[in-house]
Design a protein around this nucleic acid. Structure first.
Length: 496
RNA sequence: GCUCCCAUAGACUAGCGGUUAGGUCGCGGCCCUUUCAAGGCCGAAGCACGAGUUCGAUUCUCGUUGGGAGCACCA
């Protein structure tokens, strides 16, 4: 039997890290089992569904590399479409008719007010709020009459009230609910659009879904969907796997108030998609040896190979940005120079440091500049700031660095001396500049740092930066000499 | 309130009756070092609690406490 799983987002918001992880687990499970990963859009919430949201979800999945085998946006969508629920009204209508004919569904004419009252009464008497089924026993004649009169109505499920619904959840284990507690939930809204509960169950059957992997906020929906499968007499009930939620640092379910939660925000901040995958995979799943990092180039393959639903955590996991950052740094350090430049390029462009028409020599320069700062780079959005001073014509001096280093006794004398030495250098390499600075220090009886620091600030405007002599070689003699001269001219020094 | 789920350091987790309770992030210290990082070494820090089962419980059972989720004509 081929494994068929689905990710079924409703396009009512951006792709959230929780959703991304659910998609990832489905994807990993499908790949692990050489199965099929289906994307189904549950757009039955007419009020909240938007096109922007849909495209955000699709582009988020694509950015992460979670490609789907069936679903929207594919050359060949697949044999079980359409994959938008709003495009399948006849399907649900047909299935509703089946239930109606067997009296397993019925029209309900209760108004919002009726339901509100019902709920309040239940709450007051400390019982679970649930629909009391009053329209279930309406005489047939009355039903017909009100239907014909065009009275607004929904269709409800006449749920069996005996016994308990039990199912063996792959991650939670045996879960059981008393049927008594479930109510006659709505199958089709008064607008004629099916609810998630109904459409989801029908589609899972029709699309031959074998495993439903979703957040455990759906755990209590599962018995209802199982009842639907039973009502239809379908024997192909999918296996369920409810993965636990992702929480914020305060222990509450992750939400906007915890900061960045949409995949797009992480992309903007400069996290690598493969890092998101690696990190998210481990948020609720682990290998038997607690492996933290997967092969950098094709981590998804390694993860897919090792992924098992049985090894998913039953308790919620807190999203830890610090660990994400660490992981991003690790992956960045493993990139080649060219890869790093290509990955950072959009961020440099965004910052106005480069453009599409940047020339080849500059591209090479940027590559080398980034390479100098590679080990320091945590998120790509920091890349511009780490190398901007290497690319600009005029160095911008950080006041604090000037104060701390250039205004120190003897600093300017050092620069004057070094300037002369540098001008004499024919081959301006890392080795040569370092040798010159060291011997200069020795000759003047200074500590190496007393020479290095002023040179660094004169050339870069700050005390923090790449390895000094590598930086000098990259900038080249002309630029270095020029920058030292300008520093000595000292407009910014006297300005105070 | 009702129902369901969950419980190993600050965070992510390994463990599946007998372990000095392992790894990772973060944190602290030392080393390396021109800065900032990176790296190396060392360290602090954990089985929520109470019963039971057992020769023996982190591990099995029950309860307590704590946390979470669901209870819509939203998904």
């Amino acid at each position: 039997m081929t494994i068929r799983v689905r990710f079924a987002p409703s396009p009512t918001g951006f792709l959230h890290v929780g959703g991304a992880r659910t998609a990832l687990y489905n994807w990993l499970y499908a790949r692990h089992n050489k199965g099929t990963f289906i994307l189904r859009i549950e757009d039955t919430d007419e009020a909240r569904s938007t096109d922007e949201s849909l495209s955000a979800i699709l582009s988020g999945l694509r950015w992460l590399g979670l490609t789907w085998d069936e679903g929207p946006g594919l050359q060949n969508e697949g044999a079980f479409g359409p994959y938008f629920q709003m495009a399948r009204p006849d399907v649900y209508r047909k299935h509703l008719d089946v239930l109606l004919a067997q009296e397993k569904a019925y029209p309900c004419f209760c108004t919002k007010d009726d339901l509100e009252q019902m709920r309040n009464r239940a709450l007051l008497s400390k019982r679970a709020p649930k629909y009391d089924g009053r329209c279930r026993d309406l005489p047939k004649a009355e039903r017909e009459r009100r239907l014909c009169a065009g009275e607004p109505h929904v269709f409800r499920f006449a749920r069996p009230s005996e016994g308990a619904i039990q199912f063996n959840d792959i991650v939670k284990g045996l879960v059981s609910f008393e049927s008594e507690l479930l109510d006659d939930f709505v199958l089709v809204k008064s607008s004629g659009v099916p609810t998630f509960m109904f459409a989801g169950a029908v589609d899972d059957h029709l699309m031959k879904i074998t495993h439903v992997i979703r957040g455990d906020d759906h755990l209590s929906n599962t018995p209802r969907q199982i009842q639907l499968f039973e009502a239809f007499g379908w024997k192909d009930m999918p296996a369920y796997a409810h993965i636990s939620m992702i929480h914020g640092p305060d222990g509450a379910r992750l939400s906007k108030r915890h900061g960045a939660t949409s995949i797009e925000e992480f992309q903007k901040a400069g996290y690598l998609p493969e890092v998101m995958l690696n990190y998210l995979a481990l948020l609720g799943w682990s290998t038997s040896d607690s492996q933290q990092l997967f092969s950098p180039k094709e981590n998804f393959k390694e993860m897919a190979e090792k992924f098992e639903l049985e090894r998913c955590q039953r308790s919620p996991a807190v999203f830890d940005t610090e660990k994400l950052k660490w992981m991003n740094g690790v992956y960045i350090r493993q990139l080649t120079k060219d890869e790093l430049r290509d990955r950072a390029w959009p961020y440099l462009k965004e910052a106005g440091l480069v453009t599409d028409s940047t020339d080849e020599p500059t591209k090479t320069f940027v590559r080398e500049a980034l390479a100098l700062e590679q080990e320091k780079l945590v998120v790509l959005s920091e890349a511009p700031h780490l190398i901007d001073f290497l690319l600009v014509k005029e160095v911008v001096f950080d006041p604090e660095s000037v104060e701390k280093v250039l205004k120190k006794e003897g600093a300017l004398a050092v620069l004057e001396g070094i300037l002369l030495e540098f001008e004499k250098l024919d081959v301006f390499t890392t080795q040569n500049t370092e040798a010159v600075c060291r011997s200069f220090a020795e000759a003047k009886g200074l500590k190496a740092g007393q020479v290095f620091h002023p040179v660094r600030v004169a050339v870069s405007g700050r005390t923090k930066g790449p390895s000094l002599f590598h930086m000098l070689e990259l900038l080249g003699k002309t630029t270095v000499v020029d920058r030292i001269k300008k520093t000595l001219d000292g407009a910014h020094l006297s300005a105070r």
